[in-house]
Design a protein around this nucleic acid. Sequence first.
DNA 1: CCTCTGTATAACGTTGCTTTTATATGAGCA
DNA 2: TGCTCATATAAAAGCAACGTTATACAGAGG
Lengths: 115, 115
Amino acid sequence: MGNTRGVDVFTAVADQTRRAMLDLLTGGERPAGDLVAAFPALTQPAISRHLRVLREVGLVDVRAQAQRRIYTLRAERLSEVDAWLDQYRQYWARHLDAIEDQLATTHTGKKRSKR
Amino acid sequence: MGNTRGVDVFTAVADQTRRAMLDLLTGGERPAGDLVAAFPALTQPAISRHLRVLREVGLVDVRAQAQRRIYTLRAERLSEVDAWLDQYRQYWARHLDAIEDQLATTHTGKKRSKR
DNA sequence: CCTCTGTATAACGTTGCTTTTATATGAGCA
DNA sequence: TGCTCATATAAAAGCAACGTTATACAGAGG
């Protein structure tokens, strides 16, 4: 499930450029060249390396079309991050509830019903 | 909202040790010493530094109690990651749908209704 | 074949994170 | 006041990540 000797999803997604690349791929599959063009601040090899990381971690798929490499988003891999977040969701929800309670109390003098 | 000169939430959470520390804090607030004890492979200063990162990024709160520093989880900060994931949720959901369709077709010879 | 295009890989330098050892700070207590 | 406990900070070492330049490689087309 994870990966042997490589980056994990969390690390892959920690890089801002890689996040931006994934964001771009939500618009549909793209040849590597498009990605390179989308980041003028970086060189082609730099992008190629980021693509490798994303590939190795399973966040994108590649398919060859002539000399082009078409990259596709594989968002399912992000569900691992989502799963980890799950155990925390209740905590920030609880906190938001507290804030809502606070606001409700302040504005109406009444307390919200529980849960 | 982010942070001036420091790590962002994604980077903070990219480290496995820090994720484990947060996981521990879901069990309730803990003095720094407990965290140190929980990671025998690391030294006290190492944990202290990780705590600093988590503090700076707003994922934990500290409160002094005598010489102890009590750390509390601040999960709300993780909603930033959650928000980013939002734009991808539909994609992996779509993919899961496709798998379900596949299963349904295989098992019943019928196709699921759309959406 | 030869060359051009598109992309990946190699080698290398730099920067920055993580960890360690050593030390400082600060509260409680004899 | 002096000592101990809990934790933070400083300084330095090790190493891995990211970027760059240079080069390899594979497919298309003349």
